[in-house]
């Protein structure tokens, strides 16, 4: 019977398929990172695509095969550092607040045996499905009226709220995996509910909290709809800033500013996967298996 031994042909085919997928998934980033150190006529060559490899025009214009002009133009001349700073503030604050609200709420949902906890989760699922831009169109007029449009604080609070449905679902399923006996034992020993939560449950929940934090980070960092509409020009985060580079694309060289800022904005994500690959994979599967 052939079915018993692994077929070599199939293994070869599988390996080839995986290789093709790896190139598809990884090459675009490699290529763009490489190209960001070239000048525009090389990376977007009208003449010959190999110019991007050899960097003919880069050598002619700058004297070296690689140039940091795109980065200088974006970070220094166009204040991309300010956008990076805004992004740092927004993501750190959003993750912290999301986790504080989310652990409290997720714990309550996991421990309540009543029907309303179930309905809150269902409503959260519906909220999770709302396209963010539809909510943003509801914010603008009230925010203008209250005069709170355009500040980082407003964006942070909005992002925290938009992340809540997802955070609640994820933390709820992590809390379900912590046995109920644990908090009950703590309460028998004289803890209040909150003390049991803080001193007994949270310490064993750290892996779940870190994983949920990673996903909150991604939601806040990757957001375009909210930050593009709710922030002013001068306190924009990185993603809307990149979008605004595209608007002024006529000038020669501006495209390379956009390319280099895109590469810059990819670096934190790249590091994130490198260090937290296990947690990200664990989080995806935890949500799938239990949700």
């Amino acid at each position: 019977m052939t079915a018993h031994r692994p077929s070599r042909l199939l293994s070869v085919f599988a390996t080839l398929f995986v290789l093709v997928w790896m190139v598809t998934a990884g090459f675009p980033f490699l290529w763009t990172a490489w190209g960001s150190f070239k000048v525009e006529p090389d990376f977007f060559s009208r003449v010959d695509w190999t110019n991007a490899l050899t960097g003919v025009n880069t050598v002619r214009q700058t004297g070296g095969a690689f140039t940091g002009d795109g980065y200088y133009g974006a970070w220094v001349l166009n204040d991309f550092w300010a956008a990076a700073l805004s992004t740092a503030i927004v993501t750190v604050a959003t993750v912290t607040l999301s986790l504080i609200l989310g652990t409290l709420g997720g714990y309550a949902l996991a421990r309540s045996g009543y029907r309303y906890a179930f309905w809150i989760l269902i409503v959260a699922l519906i909220f999770r499905a709302m396209p963010h831009i539809t909510l943003v169109s509801g914010y603008l007029v009230p925010f203008f009226e209250l005069n709170i449009w355009g500040t980082l604080t407003t964006s942070i609070i909005v992002l925290v709220a938009i992340n809540q449905p997802f955070t609640l679902w994820m933390l709820h399923s992590f809390f379900l995996s912590v046995p109920r006996d644990l908090d009950e034992a703590a309460m028998v020993d004289g803890c209040t509910r909150f003390q049991a939560f803080r001193t007994v449950i949270l310490p064993v929940m750290w892996p779940g909290i870190i994983t949920t934090g990673l996903f909150s980070f991604l939601l806040a960092y990757n957001d375009f709809a909210v930050t593009a509409m709710l922030l002013r020009q001068d306190n924009q985060t990185m993603i809307p800033k990149i979008a605004s580079f595209l608007g002024s694309i006529q000038n020669e060289g501006n495209v390379m500013f956009a390319v280099s800022s895109v590469v810059s904005a990819t670096v934190p994500l790249f590091l994130l996967v490198m260090f937290f690959q296990r947690q990200i994979v664990g989080g995806l599967t935890a949500g799938a298996v239990k949700g």
């Binding site: 960092y221 990819t266 994500l269």
Partner: peptide, 13 residues
């Protein structure tokens, strides 16, 4: 590792 990149990347980027 490589497979995760397109997923976690900012959609605009």
């Amino acid at each position: 590792f490589v497979s995760l990149l397109p997923m976690i990347i900012t959609p605009l980027i």
